[in-house]
Design a protein around this nucleic acid. Structure first.
Lengths: 212, 212
DNA sequence: ATACGAAAAATGTGATCACATTATTTTTGT
DNA sequence: ACAAAAATAATGTGATCACATTTTTCGTAT
């Protein structure tokens, strides 16, 4: 088995981005991250290069790397991209869903509810991502799936600040509707649920913070 | 002004990919490319890492890097992604078009015709890309535009082999319809032209080769 | 001739170093 | 006390080296 430090570093930065442990605008340094992870700057360089290409990180004119800041225009584009691609991905996944998957999604959704009750934002973000990608990864997709992963890396750090601002008590999602749609073999309802989840869960919340 | 070798290497590999100078399946070596470009392996490493993240290159389990091979499923996904995103990008660009842009596109389109007449596939691919992105880059987009660039990097090497197989004489595009739509200020017609260009120009041609 | 195995070459990875540029801190002058 | 300037520290970039793994080449046996 072939493994390398670069992928380990990339995975851990990915995870940190997706659970909101990096703050938008905050610069990241090679040596700093390297020391933090106990590796040389070399694998960090490659991992950050990769994430920069995925637009999860931003390369400033002076060569510094940071988490990009969110703008209203970018947020609207991300929203539009999600609304285009994720229902399509759900549709590709649909033929591969069955009761066992529905049960798995239900278990994840329960942990989401727990996280919200506890006010544990990181856990919420991790399980929410898990919910969506457990579904999406059923799709035999080598194009859309990576694109959607890229998108999530772009908005996750911002959503963390949103949740921090408005709290976790007002979070709405349409996960239960999605699970029900899978069980009823209702593709239309599944796509609507995903669409609604993005529109109501992310869109409204994000815009409310953006308005400041 | 801050410049670095890495970006120069990346740009030249990008250009080579987009004009079909790399053959799908062909492996790329760090030291080989480095020597070819007259630099050390270091900036090549970073450039290839970046392009791998963009799915323009593929990292094999043994660590080797190559241009991905096309499959029917991947082709269909790429087509679907293009049909989703490019008309949307054209719509975002539309308010920023005017006669001067139309004239510029017309000039590019004339060079496309010349290239086809000469049977110069590389020139054709370069100008075709130039046509599309001259339009798309008018859109104030920081999300869709990079996604579409990623897509083009993924199908360009394959299209080169398609053109090599079926020749350049049967190429159809809807560029003139797009230019006319811009001049008539007809958004609907512009989106239809882009849609048709992708569907007829790439879709039919690609599928015919894929069918082998 | 062909298949197998050993030797040789080539490859990606990670570490370290040197260097120019940029950021930060300290010193100095008024 | 505050601003300007000098010194110091930190950063990304590119090169080179060592190394394990993989690929290729070449010799040998059947």
């Amino acid at each position: 088995m072939r493994s390398n430090l670069r992928d380990k570093v990339e995975d851990s930065v990915r995870e940190a981005l997706l659970t909101g442990h990096f703050i938008p605008g905050k610069p990241i340094t090679l040596r700093g991250l390297a020391e933090e992870l106990g590796v040389s700057p070399m694998p960090v360089r490659e991992a950050l290069r990769s994430l920069t290409a995925a637009r999860a990180l931003e390369l400033l004119p002076n060569g510094r790397i940071r988490i990009p800041e969110m703008t209203t225009a970018r947020f609207e584009e991300i929203l539009a991209a999600r609304l285009m691609m994720e229902p399509a991905l759900a549709e590709m996944a649909f033929p591969h869903t069955h009761e066992k998957i529905a049960a798995k999604l239900e278990a994840i959704d329960n942990r989401i509810d727990d996280s919200l009750q506890d006010g544990d934002v990181s856990a919420y973000m991790r399980f929410n991502r898990s919910f969506h990608f457990t579904l999406y990864e059923l799709a035999p997709s080598t194009v859309f799936l990576p694109l959607v992963e890229t998108i999530w890396l772009q908005f996750a750090p911002f959503m963390r600040t949103v949740y921090g601002r408005v709290g976790t008590s007002f979070l709405i999602d349409m996960h239960k509707e999605a699970i029900s749609a899978i069980r009823r073999r209702d593709l239309r309802a599944l796509k609507d649920a995903i669409n609604g989840d993005i529109h109501d869960g992310m869109g409204i919340l994000g815009r409310s913070v953006m308005a400041d």
